[in-house]
Design a protein around this nucleic acid. Structure first.
Lengths: 188, 188
DNA sequence: ACCTGAACACCGTTCAAGT
DNA sequence: ACCTGAACACCGTTCAAGT
C-alpha cells in the first residue's frame, strides 16, 4: 500500500489570492505574515515553506498587477498608441488594488518566464517598429509616470485640496499624452 | 532665584538631521525610533515629546527633500525650462538620499508655511505665464515622473540588466524632456 | 518642560519537532 | 512533504513617574 497522501493546505496561488483579499480589506499595514496565515487557517511559519520571505510574496503581488496591465493592452496601430494604452492600464491596476504604490516601493514585480530579458520587455514596442533602446527607455518612462502618479496621489498633502483643485484622472491623462507625444526615438 | 533651566537634549532639527544620517548609513530598514534615539543618546519615548508619531518625522524628511529641490531651481526664461530644471533637481535629491522613493511612498512631504495652498504651489509656473490649472497639472506630472523613476530604478528586477542595457540618467532625461515638450497648457 | 522605565501588542524569521 | 510550537530579536507607541 502507498502511504496516505493528504492534500496540502496551502499553495502559492492560494496564498497570493488571500494576500490580495487582505490588502483590499484592511490595507498594507494589516498585511502581516501572521494575519495572512490566520486567514488561511494556518500558522505563520507554514508560509515559509512556500515563500523564501515576505518580500518574495509581495513581489508576486506586484508582478501580477504589472503583468495584467500588459495583457490588458489590445492590438495597437503604432507604438505611441501602445504606450498610452499601457500607461492607462497600469494606472487602472494601481487604482484597483489598495496601497499599490507602497507595494511597488517595497517589492519589485517578480518577473516570470523569460519576461525578464530586455528583448521580451521591449517586444511590444519593437514589434511596432521602435528600436530596442528607445523601447526600453519609453516603457520605463511610462511605468515611472504611472507609478509616481499613484504614489503622489495616495499622498495626503495634495489629496485634500488637489482633488477639488485638479482632476486627477484628467491630469494623469494629460501627463501621459504629453510624455508619449513628446517622445523622440533615439534613431529616427 | 529662577529655577535652574538645563538645556533640552533634543529639538526637531537635531532629530531630523540624525534621521538623515542614519538613513544614509544604514538604510530605511534600520531607521527605527529606537535606533534613532540611541544615536541621540536618549530613550525612544523621548522622541514622542517632539513628534506625534514616526510618520510625522518621515514627513519632515520628505518635505526637506521636496523643498530643497524647488530652491535649487534658479531663474528661468519660461515655464518649460522651469519644469525641466525642477525635474532634474528632484531626481538629484532622490539620488542623494538613500531609499528616498520608499520614504516618499510612506510619508508625504510635510508642507511648511503657506506652501500647501494651490496658488503657492503653482506660483513658480504662473509667474512665468502658465494658468494655474495647467501649472498644478504639469508640476504633478513632473513630480510623478521623478518619483516613479526612482522607485523603478531602486527596484531590483530591472536594475540588473537595465543599468547596462539602458543608461538610467539619459533615459530619465529623455522622459523628462518628452513630458515637458509634449505638454499643452489647457488654455492656449 | 522634557525625559526615563516599564510595559503592551505586535512584527519577520528560524528551527526543532511532529505527521 | 508540509505544517506546528516555541522561541529570538526586534518593532511603534503609551503612560506613569521622575527631574
Amino acid at each position: 500500500m502507498m502511504a496516505k497522501r493528504i492534500a496540502p493546505a496551502l499553495d502559492r496561488k492560494l496564498v497570493v489570492d488571500a494576500a490580495f483579499a487582505l490588502l483590499r480589506e484592511e490595507g498594507i499595514e494589516a498585511l502581516s505574515m501572521r494575519r495572512l496565515a490566520a486567514r488561511l487557517q494556518v500558522q505563520a511559519p507554514a508560509l515559509y515553506w512556500h515563500f523564501r520571505d515576505k518580500n518574495e510574496l509581495l513581489g508576486l503581488m506586484t508582478g501580477a498587477i504589472y503583468r495584467q496591465a500588459q495583457e490588458e493592452v489590445g492590438a495597437c496601430a503604432d507604438w505611441r498608441e501602445w504606450l498610452v494604452e499601457y500607461g492607462r492600464a497600469l494606472r487602472r491596476g494601481m487604482l484597483r488594488e489598495r496601497d499599490a504604490a507602497r507595494l511597488f516601493a517595497i517589492a519589485p514585480p517578480a518577473p516570470q518566464g523569460e519576461a525578464a530579458q530586455a528583448p521580451a520587455i521591449a517586444a511590444p514596442l519593437t514589434d511596432l517598429g521602435l528600436d530596442q533602446a528607445s523601447a526600453l527607455s519609453a516603457r520605463a518612462a511610462v511605468i515611472s509616470l504611472a507609478l509616481g502618479w499613484s504614489t503622489y496621489e495616495a499622498n495626503g498633502p495634495m489629496h485634500h485640496f488637489l482633488e477639488g483643485m485638479l482632476d486627477l484622472d484628467r491630469s494623469f491623462e494629460a501627463g501621459l499624452q504629453a510624455l508619449v507625444r513628446g517622445f523622440e526615438p533615439f534613431t529616427a
